[in-house]
Each structure stands twice: as structure tokens, then as C-alpha cells.
Amino acid sequence: MKSILLVLTACTLVFYSCTNATEQALTENEKETLAQEVETTINKMMDGMKNIDVEAAFESNFLMDENFRYVDIYGKTLKKDAFRKAAHGVFDNVEKIEFEFTTPIIRIIDRKVAVVNLTYSGKYYFPGSTLAWSPCGSTLVLQKIDNEWKVIHFHESIQESEFVTTDL
């Protein structure tokens, strides 16, 4: 009886250690491969923005679920529907767009999470008016879901503000 109990205890410990094994650290090659995958998603987003295509820029690259959040340049947090409305409000009414993007800085957190930082500036040409802005910093959090990288959080901020440029 003691031997059966000992075997059962040993099997339980082996099973428990296998199911709770920590994920192995990423190799540099794995990080590079994952970063390239993330960069592909970011490039699709930037191309969609340049081509005035909300679907290609955001909707196909963002996980538009109830947990999605966008923090706009004014610090206001928008959920998916408000973000869609804001994006369409600009992209559906603009005639031409010019963007300049920096090279994305990609940090791979693990096999399923990445953080991307980039800066861009641009100009929107609306019928009868033009809107240009100074460099805008962006932070995007991406999650790999069903073998695709999706933006789950997007935060933008204008790099130059009255506070920064005012002589105190």
C-alpha cells in the first residue's frame, strides 16, 4: 500500500511540474522573428493610413473587442466604437493625407505580447482646409491571437505642447 501511495505521489508531482513549467526564455533569433511579424502588422497599419483606408489601417490590425482602448492626443480614453467613429470622422472626409513615420521600436515581451513605439507627423487635406500637426508619439500594445498580431491598446500624444514650448 505504501509503495502504491509513493508511486501516486511521485506521478502527481511529475504531472504537476510538467503542467506548471515556466515558459522558456526567447532566443535572440526568436525575438527577431517575432519582431519581424510585428513590424509587418505595423507596416500594414501605416500603409492603410497613407492610403486613407480605415479598414487596412486599423480595423484589420486591431482587436476591436470590449477590452480595446485608445488614448487620444488629448488624454481621452476611447473604447472601440468611439475609436471607430473618430477614425472614420477623419478618414472618410479627407481628400489627401501625408505622413512621415519613424522606424518603429519593437520590444518583444514574450511569444504573444509586444510593445511598439513610433513617432509620426502629417498633414490632412480636407475640402477647403488643411490640418498639419507636429510629431505625435504612439505606443501600441500587440497580442498574438490565432497566429496574428493585433493591436489591443493604442496611445498617442503630441510631442510638442504649449507647456513644453512656453518660457516658464
Rank of each mutant, 00 (worst) to 15 (best):
M1W: 06
M1E: 10
K2T: 11
K2D: 09
S3M: 14
I4P: 01
I4C: 08
I4S: 04
V7M: 14
T9H: 09
C11V: 14
T12S: 11
L13D: 05
F15A: 15
F15Y: 15
Y16C: 13
Y16E: 03
S17N: 09
T19G: 03
T19E: 11
N20D: 04
T22V: 11
T22L: 10
T22M: 05
E23Q: 15
L26V: 01
N29Y: 01
K31Y: 07
E32V: 00
T33M: 10
E37C: 09
E39A: 13
E39K: 15
T41I: 02
N43S: 10
M46I: 08
M46L: 02
D47R: 13
G48L: 12
M49D: 00
N51E: 11
I52K: 11
I52R: 08
D53G: 04
D53P: 04
V54S: 06
V54T: 03
A56T: 06
A57I: 06
F58G: 03
N61G: 04
N61C: 00
F62M: 06
F62Y: 12
D65W: 00
E66V: 03
N67T: 07
N67G: 02
N67V: 05
F68M: 08
Y70P: 00
G75Q: 01
K76G: 01
T77M: 08
T77R: 05
K80I: 07
A82H: 06
F83Q: 05
R84D: 01
R84K: 12
K85S: 10
K85H: 05
K85T: 07
V90P: 04
V90E: 08
V90W: 10
F91I: 07
F91Q: 01
D92R: 03
N93V: 02
N93Y: 03
V94F: 00
E95W: 00
E95C: 01
E98C: 09
E100K: 13
P104E: 04
I106A: 02
I106N: 00
R107K: 14
I108E: 03
R111S: 09
K112R: 07
A114Y: 00
L118T: 05
L118Q: 03
T119V: 14
Y120N: 07
S121H: 02
S121M: 05
S121E: 03
S121Y: 04
G122L: 03
G122D: 08
K123R: 15
Y124T: 07
Y125S: 07
F126P: 01
S129H: 05
S129L: 03
S129I: 01
L131T: 10
W133Y: 15
P135C: 03
C136I: 13
G137K: 12
L140Q: 09
V141A: 10
Q143D: 00
I145L: 14
N147Y: 11
N147H: 14
N147D: 15
W149N: 06
W149D: 02
W149F: 02
W149L: 10
K150H: 08
K150C: 05
V151M: 07
F154Y: 15
F154L: 12
E156K: 04
S157R: 07
I158R: 11
E160Q: 12
S161G: 13
E162M: 15
F163V: 14
T165A: 08
T166A: 13
D167L: 15
D167W: 12
L168A: 08
